[in-house]
Amino acid sequence: MDRFGDLQGLMKDKILRIYFFPVVLVILLLLIGSDNIQLFAGSRQSVIYTYANSFLKGEIGSGFGVYSSERVSFTGLEPGDIVMGGWSNCAYGRYSHAGLYVGNNQVLEGDVDYGLSVQALGDYMKFTQLCLLRVEASPEVKKKAVDYAMARQGEMFYPVAFKQGERYWNCTKIIWEAYYIQGINLDEINDLWIAPEKFADSSMVKNLYEKGISNS
């Protein structure tokens, strides 16, 4: 109890109070950095590298563009398939958004406005870049992945959520986690965050359809 009182006393000091979080920040940067040294040591596959490159070009965030008027057929999609859409100026890769197809022309996805929620598959038609992937897993595994994701509806979206923990989600973390707990790791470089395009790069998926991606 005395030690707690000492800590309270320290926190009441006006100088220590201002330095507390900056010091914690530096310590956490060092700890997380050392835990992921392979990503910070110039790995060009990491989303950190992709974002840094885009930032230098003046691109930030998920990007934007004129909505596509092209009709896309989603016939043949199965629950557990991954749907990704994006704009050419997305700062973190070819695609800015991803959802897990859950059947009935619906996807489970994450967004700040609705948290993890079921939305219409047709919304993805607006993207100029679109990709449909099938995870190479048994129907039972895919059903469990879908069930896991569906059980998380209403949970909090946080754009820069780390893969650790189950209180903060973004559109890719929920898909990655849903399959990860079934024993399938769709992020083969074990990045801090998962950019949607990393799913397309995974050896565990099959590309069903892709549009808008230049080969140059």
Binding site: R17, I18, L28, L29, I32, Y158, Q164
Partner: peptide, 21 residues
């Protein structure tokens, strides 16, 4: 300035702390 330093450094530190649930 003091409260801005407190708040902004807390934003960054608490975000990183999410790495350790």
């Amino acid at each position: 300035g003091r409260v801005y330093i407190l708040h902004i450094s807390a934003i960054l530190a608490i975000w990183l702390a999410m790495y350790y649930p």
